[in-house]
Computed example of a mutant assay.
Amino acid sequence: MFEIRIICETPEADRITAALGATFRTGTIRRWPARTAGKERLYITADHRPDPTGATWPSPETAYAGAPDITEEFGSLASAMVQSMRPGATTDRALYLRKAALLDRIALLDQDINVSSDSAEVATDAARQLITLDLGGDGNYGGDPFWPEHPATDANPRGYVRQEYAHWAAHQ
């Protein structure tokens, strides 16, 4: 959920609110006069609409069904990261994907056992790193049903990691 603030010409206010209502789920629209004559301030609480195709993110259980044990993956990933830091080595997308998936799994575990930590925030940050990599990359991502530019990806970065991990794991 987010807030939108618009300053517009008074005659355009209805057209703008209708367009926003068609694009987002909107709450009550608050209208106030602007400091400039002939203009209005619009304040709208909005949220992304569900995907019209009905597509959903894979559940963690589905995405990580064949994933290695968290401890095993942690060790394997740490080793791969050390290797990637050597001079001349390159870091491939799979490393970022595995890191984001591991952090997502840790955050889910913390949630399941009621541990208060910042693991969800850390997992979300890692997911955003992967999305940024995919946005600037060569299209080497699954993108089904949500590609990195999709608004649903921005709204649920950890869902994107699960989608991409499931795709990656299925093609290993």
Rank of each mutant, 00 (worst) to 15 (best):
Q172A: 05
D51Q: 06
D144N: 14
I70K: 05
L95H: 08
T17E: 08
T91P: 00
E164V: 11
A34L: 03
A170G: 08
I29Q: 07
A46F: 07
H167C: 04
G137I: 08
D144G: 01
M1T: 14
R93H: 07
Y160S: 05
L108K: 13
C8G: 10
R41A: 06
A170T: 08
R158M: 03
G142D: 02
P11T: 09
G21N: 06
T56W: 00
V122L: 10
F146E: 00
S84N: 08
L108R: 15
V115L: 11
R15Y: 04
T45E: 09
E40V: 15
Q129K: 12
A37R: 14
R35E: 13
T28S: 10
E149S: 11
D92E: 14
Q163V: 03
L102K: 10
H167M: 02
K99L: 15
S79N: 12
I4F: 09
Q111F: 12
R15L: 09
N114D: 15
A55S: 15
T56A: 06
S59T: 15
E3L: 12
P148Y: 06
R86T: 13
W147V: 12
T62D: 05
P33W: 05
A65L: 10
W32C: 04
A170S: 15
A22S: 10
A63Y: 07
K99Q: 15
E12Q: 15
W57C: 00
G139L: 03
I106G: 02
W57Y: 10
S119V: 04
W147L: 04
A94F: 04
H167A: 12
R162G: 08
A166V: 03
I4H: 06
S119Y: 02
I7C: 10
R35G: 15
R15V: 12
M1I: 11
Y141T: 09
A67W: 07
K99R: 15
A22W: 08
P145D: 02
T53N: 03
D51T: 09
G54C: 04
I6E: 05
G137F: 05
A89K: 11
D14P: 00
L102N: 06
K39L: 06
W168P: 00
I29F: 02
G54L: 02
A123T: 09
L97F: 11
T26W: 00
T26G: 01
R98F: 00
G137E: 02
T124M: 01
F24T: 01
V115P: 01
